[in-house]
Design a binder for these strands. Sequence first.
DNA 1: ATCAAACTGTGTACAGTGTACGCATTGCCC
DNA 2: GGGCAATGCGTACACTGTACACAGTTTGAT
Lengths: 189, 189
Amino acid sequence: MSHLTKDRILDAARDLFVEHGEGAVTMRAVASLAGVSTMAAYRHFPNREALLLAVMEHGHDKFLAAMSRALSAAGPLERLIASGDAYLNFALANPRDYELMFLRPAQVDLMCAPLAWRDAATFRFLVDRVAECMAAGILHGEDPEMLAFSIWALVHGMVALYLTHKLAADEPTFRALYVSALTAALARA
Amino acid sequence: MSHLTKDRILDAARDLFVEHGEGAVTMRAVASLAGVSTMAAYRHFPNREALLLAVMEHGHDKFLAAMSRALSAAGPLERLIASGDAYLNFALANPRDYELMFLRPAQVDLMCAPLAWRDAATFRFLVDRVAECMAAGILHGEDPEMLAFSIWALVHGMVALYLTHKLAADEPTFRALYVSALTAALARA
DNA sequence: ATCAAACTGTGTACAGTGTACGCATTGCCC
DNA sequence: GGGCAATGCGTACACTGTACACAGTTTGAT
């Protein structure tokens, strides 16, 4: 059954990736963990990079699902803040996924449609949250995209600096920094 | 003269890195470009990672030098803004160096003293600029480190999103975004 | 001046990597 | 049954990092 094999290979790749990082995702290790020959993997993925991209898509879906759970919050501002928290929590809970999705220098030529779509979805989600707040008069300004970008950059920057150890702080301290920096930014917008 | 050989090897590594990216920095290619045998490189660098780290240190020095040139601006706020511009300009002019220094998931065990020092230097430089502005009453708040972190995160986030192609904008548009996001953040601090 | 030790560079060799190619097996449609 | 496409496998090759043993050179002590 081809479909199952493909899934087993992808699962194996995901396991290795989440557990031991990108370097551990070798075609041989993946195939062996999936219980198939090395070359069987090439029947389902043209090359290693494509396999990693598939892992990445999966991560994106998990990520977007986590973000969309923030929509259950009561008001527009609560939804925006919950989205930020969901973003941070996902990044801290799934550092390797976050790294693969957002920290890696993406090869433009591999920017296939499904991935570009997922990238854009992250941004549009945030733009919608900001626009919601603006419509409700909670945030001021007339360009939600602009403000959304600032917020994304701020949160992404904090997360990136933390994950790459540029910030000498333990997790609780970092979370505190995050909260005060983000609320300060929002309070003034 | 060993010293010259080491420099030739490092230069070759830098050339390959800046020109063709990290993947092109193979021990064989570096050694060949430097005109020595492959294993000669191992006489001067314990392994490939150490060679890359040396390239990274060099990048950091270039970076800190570029930043410190911002100190010639007139007032505290001008110096802070010039620092931000220097940061952005360096990142756009040397994307691979920036990527190696600030985007890469740093292996904690390789965080040797010289690198940690250089990392901290970036942050302290920014803290000093912010403290200067606070002392002059141009920026408000009592924790320069906190504000400096926010600013760094914002700028790093914008640069990172741009360099990893998460932002669908050409360079002029991005620079405009940068200016308005940063001045907005500063205007309110 | 001599000799030993340290230093520097080389060639060879090996294990691990991605992956091209061709063959075997299977399931499916006519 | 007779093709036939899809799937999986084994082998082979080029390229990687780097361990190891060796050769030439420099240095320092006697």
